[in-house]
């Protein structure tokens, strides 16, 4: 069980960082954006999202502050930091490398 979560967690972190690279957002917004862009193929579990967000914040890759949402309710907005931006590049490269490798193996006859 633990292993599965880890993999998911790593991927989720990447998705969050990418999503935030387009601009600051709150948790709900992130789930909506990801679901939209992936054409509903990815549904984000809030139970995974929020711990990830907080973890990324502790690691210093995103920062947060309270702000007003569309509904005029107070919400916590997250945004990418400079370190986060660098991290995004690194992780994106890693992801591409891994998927390439996996594909090569899967294409093995």
């Amino acid at each position: 069980m633990a292993k599965k979560t880890d993999l998911m967690q790593g991927t989720l972190d990447l998705l969050i960082l990418k999503t935030l690279s387009l601009g600051p957002m709150h948790g709900w917004g992130i789930t909506q954006r990801i679901e939209q862009v992936s054409r509903q193929k990815l549904r984000i579990n809030p139970g995974s999202l929020y711990p990830s967000l907080h973890r990324l914040e502790i690691k210093g890759w995103i920062s947060s502050e309270l702000g007003a949402s569309e509904a005029n309710r107070r919400a916590r907005f997250y945004k990418l930091t400079a370190a986060g931006r660098r991290r995004l590049t690194v992780e994106t490269n890693d992801w591409e490398r891994i998927t390439e490798a996996v594909e090569l193996i899967l294409k093995m006859a």
């Binding site: 709150h26 948790g27 709900w28 789930t31 809030p46 929020y50 907080h54 914040e57 502790i58 690691k59 210093g60 949402s69 509904a71 309710r73 107070r74 919400a75 916590r76």
Partner: peptide, 25 residues
């Protein structure tokens, strides 16, 4: 250090954040 600082996050803020999500959902 950051973890230490952030642990000052009071519980109700987390609660608020999640409730916001619930409301939007």
């Amino acid at each position: 250090i950051r973890a230490f600082i952030h642990s000052r996050n009071p519980d109700h803020e987390i609660d608020e954040e999640l409730r916001f999500h619930l409301e939007m959902q």
